[in-house]
Computed example of a mutant assay.
Amino acid sequence: MSETMSSRVIDPLVMGFWRLLDWQLSDQQCVSFLKECIELGITHTDHADIYGQYECEAAFGAALKLAPSIRDEIKIITKCGIRPAIAKTGLTGKANHYDSSYTHIMASVEQSLQHFNTDRIDVLLIHRPDYLMDADEMAKAFNQLKRQGDVLNFGVSNFTPTQLSMLQSRCDFPLVTNQIECSPYEMKGLDDGTLDQCQQLRIHPMLWSPLAGGRLFSNRDEKALRLQTTLSKVAQEIGAKSIDQVVYCWLATLPSKPSIVLGTGNLTRVKAALESASLSMDREQWYRIWQASTGHSVP
């Protein structure tokens, strides 16, 4: 298969619904929020079967049921493969585990389709690499789901480069993304080959927790304090209104051209993220933020 894969499948900004239940929106309020995001140009949505203890997908689907026409205006990305313990009773209890078996993938997709009140998932990701994953078995599930039209595209989440390559070697079509944690606070993907592989294969990684789960604002450890100071200085230099805009600009500067997953239900912050697309920083500014994170200069 050619190293050059398909054109961009996932937009630069994706609305994440991990905390949907925390936002405490009624179904109608969720519909209104979706419509406002669509008007702003954000139409790709990120989910997972386990979010909200298996309730977030259904809550999102209940909102879609009130306004069915919205379904054709958005893309639904969801994940499967994590199975939390049902009960924990010491050594005799059940354990949290991963399940990338054919049976579980097929059952999870059927459940997600029902939860979303839809006939297709636009992108399905395997949520975490499974130590027992059988690439042939996973590809069998992917191929069948694609033939049936239940899932249009496939990708992975939190996979190492070798794990993605192994799965890709068994698939007859390109995987479209690897969703990983990445922020100025958590830069593992810059050094472990993940982002290099995405650039090599011309796929766009999805970045979750771009603001480090709020640690960039609230933490008082040395790394966070260095970053807060540097991000504030760069914000002044590039005309950013806030340090979160600087972070989005810093991430967007990556040559793999990632898709950034927003985790907020606050439209003001959503608009701020969109405005960051007009910002740019030079290499020296980018590396100053890298240096603030690592605590040292490049060699």
Rank of each mutant, 00 (worst) to 15 (best):
Leu216His: 03
Gly189Lys: 02
His204Gln: 12
Gly239Leu: 10
Thr162Arg: 06
Arg226Phe: 07
Phe173Asp: 03
Ala240His: 01
Gly239Phe: 06
Cys171Arg: 03
Gln199Ala: 13
Arg220His: 08
Cys182Ser: 07
Gln228Trp: 10
Ala212Tyr: 03
Asp191Glu: 09
Leu227Glu: 04
Asp196Tyr: 06
Ser242Gln: 09
Thr229Tyr: 11
Ser232Gln: 15
Pro174Asp: 14
Gln168Asp: 10
Ser165Leu: 14
Ala235Asp: 09
Lys188Tyr: 05
Tyr248Asn: 04
Leu167Ser: 06
Thr230Met: 13
Gln245Ala: 09
Trp250Pro: 01
Arg202Phe: 02
Thr177Ser: 14
Leu216Trp: 02
Ala224Phe: 04
Ser183Val: 10
Leu225Asp: 05
Ala252Thr: 09
Trp208Asn: 04
Glu237Lys: 14
Thr253Asn: 11
Phe217His: 07
Thr253Leu: 12
Ser218Leu: 08
Leu164Ala: 02
Ser169Val: 13
Arg170Ser: 15
Val246Trp: 02
Met166Gly: 00
Lys233Leu: 10
Cys249Trp: 02
Val176Arg: 02
Arg226Ile: 13
Val176Trp: 01
Ala224Met: 05
Arg170Lys: 15
Gln245Ser: 03
Cys198Thr: 10
Asp191Phe: 13
Thr229Asp: 13
Glu181Met: 11
Asp221Arg: 09
Trp208Gln: 03
Glu222Gly: 05
Gly193Cys: 11
Pro184Phe: 06
Trp250Met: 06
Ser259Gly: 07
Asp172Gln: 15
Gly213Pro: 02
Gln228Cys: 08
Thr229Gln: 14
Ala252Trp: 02
Val261Leu: 08
Thr253Gln: 13
Ala240Trp: 01
Thr160Gln: 09
Arg215Ser: 13
Gln197Asn: 04
Glu186Asn: 14
Ala235Ser: 15
Arg215Gly: 04
Asn219Lys: 09
Pro258Leu: 08
Ala212Cys: 09
